[in-house]
Simulated assay, not measured.
Amino acid sequence: MYLEVSDVKKSYGEGGSYIQVLKGVSLQVKQGDMCVIQGTSGSGKSTLLNCIGGLDTIESGSIKVDGIEIAGMKADELSDYRRDYLGFIFQFYNLVPNLTVRENIQVCEYLTDQPLNMDELLEILGLTEHQNKFPAQLSGGQQQRCAIARALIKNPKLLLCDEPTGALDSKTSRDILILLEKINATYGTTMLIVTHNNSIKNMVDQVVIVKDGQIRKDYYNETKVPAAELEDL
């Protein structure tokens, strides 16, 4: 398995404010698969993603990516792990406002010795004609495409997506999901997509349902629906 999460526990606060967010979570994801982690607000799904991404530390358990244990890594080791293995896509795009689309992407291009081809990526994401624009000149969907390109340019082995369509209308959401599907097919990128949207689970290989800090369901889709055919986005 490419990703192995075993009995992970995570809590915040102490005394009266103590809350256990993850209560012994375990899951496995195959290399090259698209996996949705679905749950309501407060279920622990984003915390789980942040732990896998090395943004949050865990109290106990194990997280292995490509056979490498990240639990217990020091700050500089986690930084190297994120640089070498991960791409992040968030609900809020976090683009640098005074850099153009191309320059925003180049920020991450410089982090790797083997980046994807910039012009090819711009073409795939429909950004070629917008590459010299600044974020304020883009629509929400175009800004999200730029954020996706920035995450992908360093050719990450694992793409972590936290509510990637949460701030978008249904048509733009569908366009972004079609792009993620195309990227998965083109580059074989393993993807974890955190969402509360009930339709997205129909387009992926694996579905993980999180509730109250525990995994309630974990199954593979027998018949995937293409992103272009998803309903009720």
Rank of each mutant, 00 (worst) to 15 (best):
L168M: 09
D169E: 12
D169F: 07
S170C: 00
S170W: 02
T172A: 03
T172Q: 06
R174Y: 07
D175A: 10
L177P: 06
L177Y: 04
L177E: 05
I178D: 02
I178L: 11
I178E: 15
I178N: 11
I178M: 15
L179A: 05
E181Y: 03
K182Q: 15
N184W: 10
A185T: 02
A185F: 03
A185L: 13
T186F: 00
Y187P: 02
G188E: 09
T189N: 02
T190M: 01
T190Y: 03
T190R: 06
T190F: 04
M191N: 05
M191T: 10
L192P: 00
L192R: 01
I193D: 01
V194N: 02
T195V: 05
H196K: 01
H196Q: 11
N197C: 11
N197P: 06
N197I: 06
N197T: 04
N198M: 14
S199D: 06
S199E: 07
I200N: 07
I200W: 02
K201Q: 14
K201I: 02
M203A: 11
M203T: 10
M203C: 01
D205C: 11
D205A: 08
D205Y: 12
D205V: 05
Q206V: 03
Q206L: 05
V207T: 12
V207D: 06
V207C: 13
V208L: 11
I209M: 14
V210M: 15
V210L: 15
K211M: 02
K211H: 12
D212F: 10
G213Q: 07
R216A: 15
R216I: 15
K217S: 14
D218I: 08
D218Q: 15
Y219I: 08
Y219P: 00
Y220N: 12
N221T: 08
N221P: 09
E222A: 10
E222C: 05
T223R: 14
T223D: 14
K224Q: 13
V225R: 07
V225I: 15
V225C: 08
